[in-house]
Simulated assay, not measured.
Amino acid sequence: MLQLNVKNESSRLKAVVLGTAISNGPMPTVEEAYDPKSLEHIIAGTYPVEEDMVKEMEAFNQVFQKYNVQVFRPNVIQDYNQIFSRDIGFVIDDIFIKANILPDRERELDAIQYVINQIDPKKVVRPPEEVHIEGGDVMLWNDYIFIGTYKGSDYKDYITARTNMAGVNYIKELFPHKIVKEFDLVKSKIEPRDNALHLDCCFQPVGTNLGIIYKSGFREESDYMYLVNLFGKENLFHIEREEMYHMNSNVFSIAPDVVVSERNFTRLNNWMRSKGITVEEIPYAEISKQEGLLRCSTLPLIRE
């Protein structure tokens, strides 16, 4: 049995589900694009090819091997995008929460059923249908659970609005002893530079008291200020619009002092090193064209 334990974003990682880019399927049509960044690359003819994405994910896998992390991979579904395992479920404390994702992605959960079968069934929950919540919007920081949402009345018109207030309230009820704080995120269907698809596109804690933040990803300045007051401005690395577009806040921690990052994130990687963090740089720029990066590709199961 897997004894789940995830209480924050950076404690030493022991077990993780890493997505797969094998048999990723044909390039989506313009109509099929789930997010503005994929759409941009479909139109430009620069949408990533499977071979490159498989190589990038293998580089990520090699880093996990180096740190003796137990890695589970989804069963491969033919011609299907299974890279972003963060969307399909997430762990808080010792509970595995299945996400109510876009209906046509339901098969991705089936592909990790063999992992879910290794968890105590009493520790696996599925929210009711009206609850929308995706792992990219759920950020753990010990006593806190940060959740990205979208409070606009046009929520249903946005395929980029992935977590609703029913999702926030569901987590509040499930974890009454935690401080649950939601953040209203900026959304765009057409401009990827102004679309915080998930909370991890504009914020993520690293180390024990540090964080990466994009101020303009929050619809309300008070939400941004909440994090500034909690972490301290000097402990936050502020990314710029273009860095947010390249997903600089979507790195992934293996330990408080080990972060996997994209090799082109020069400014961020230098900052993390200046804070005593070992930065494992890998190529991940092709995968990022689908508006997802390192954190999106992982579903942590056990941290120390």
Score class of each variant (00 low, 15 high):
residue 277 I to E: 00
residue 60 F to I: 01
residue 302 I to S: 04
residue 128 P to Y: 02
residue 108 E to P: 12
residue 236 L to P: 05
residue 204 Q to H: 13
residue 37 K to Q: 15
residue 198 H to P: 13
residue 69 V to D: 02
residue 286 E to G: 07
residue 232 G to C: 03
residue 286 E to H: 14
residue 82 Q to T: 12
residue 83 I to V: 15
residue 236 L to H: 01
residue 122 K to M: 10
residue 29 T to C: 06
residue 279 V to H: 06
residue 194 D to F: 13
residue 278 T to C: 13
residue 254 I to K: 06
residue 260 V to F: 06
residue 108 E to T: 08
residue 26 P to M: 02
residue 178 K to I: 09
residue 29 T to H: 11
residue 228 V to W: 03
residue 249 S to C: 11
residue 292 G to Y: 00
residue 299 L to R: 05
residue 57 M to T: 04
residue 20 T to R: 01
residue 84 F to M: 03
residue 272 M to H: 04
residue 270 N to M: 08
residue 266 T to K: 12
residue 124 V to N: 01
residue 241 R to G: 08
residue 290 Q to F: 09
residue 270 N to R: 14
residue 246 H to A: 07
residue 280 E to P: 07
residue 258 V to K: 12
residue 61 N to T: 02
residue 79 D to Q: 05
residue 173 E to Q: 06
residue 92 I to G: 07
residue 49 V to M: 06
residue 103 P to Q: 05
residue 189 K to T: 15
residue 248 N to V: 06
residue 247 M to F: 08
residue 1 M to F: 07
residue 144 Y to H: 15
residue 76 V to K: 07
residue 1 M to C: 05
residue 4 L to Q: 02
residue 240 E to L: 10
residue 241 R to A: 14
residue 31 E to D: 11
residue 277 I to N: 07
residue 184 D to T: 10
residue 10 S to D: 02
residue 257 D to P: 08
residue 105 R to V: 05
residue 67 Y to T: 10
residue 197 L to W: 08
residue 260 V to L: 05
residue 271 W to N: 10
residue 182 E to R: 03
residue 117 N to Q: 11
residue 188 S to G: 12
residue 149 T to D: 00
residue 151 K to M: 13
residue 237 F to Y: 15
residue 257 D to A: 05
residue 271 W to I: 09
residue 9 E to R: 01
residue 108 E to K: 09
residue 290 Q to A: 14
residue 178 K to N: 11
residue 277 I to S: 06
residue 99 A to D: 11
residue 17 V to D: 04
residue 304 E to H: 06
residue 15 A to N: 07
residue 228 V to E: 12
residue 144 Y to A: 06
residue 139 M to R: 09
residue 160 T to I: 00
residue 6 V to H: 01
residue 304 E to T: 10
residue 17 V to R: 04
residue 68 N to H: 15
residue 66 K to N: 09
residue 132 H to I: 09
residue 188 S to Y: 04
residue 1 M to N: 09
residue 29 T to Y: 10
residue 169 N to H: 13
residue 274 S to E: 07
residue 35 D to C: 11
residue 270 N to Q: 15
residue 9 E to I: 06
residue 283 P to G: 13
residue 94 D to C: 10
residue 253 S to P: 06
residue 222 S to F: 00
residue 13 L to G: 08
residue 66 K to E: 15
residue 147 I to Y: 04
residue 161 A to L: 01
residue 133 I to W: 03
residue 248 N to C: 14
residue 2 L to H: 09
residue 201 C to S: 13
residue 170 Y to L: 03
residue 111 A to V: 03
residue 119 I to R: 07
residue 220 E to H: 14
residue 304 E to W: 00
residue 2 L to Q: 04
residue 70 Q to N: 14
residue 216 S to P: 00
residue 217 G to D: 04
residue 184 D to A: 08
residue 54 V to M: 03
residue 203 F to H: 12
residue 74 P to I: 02
residue 182 E to M: 04
residue 37 K to D: 12
residue 277 I to L: 10
residue 113 Q to P: 01
residue 33 A to V: 12
residue 73 R to V: 02
residue 203 F to W: 12
residue 220 E to S: 10
residue 304 E to G: 09
residue 170 Y to I: 05
residue 211 G to N: 05
residue 164 N to D: 08
residue 78 Q to A: 15
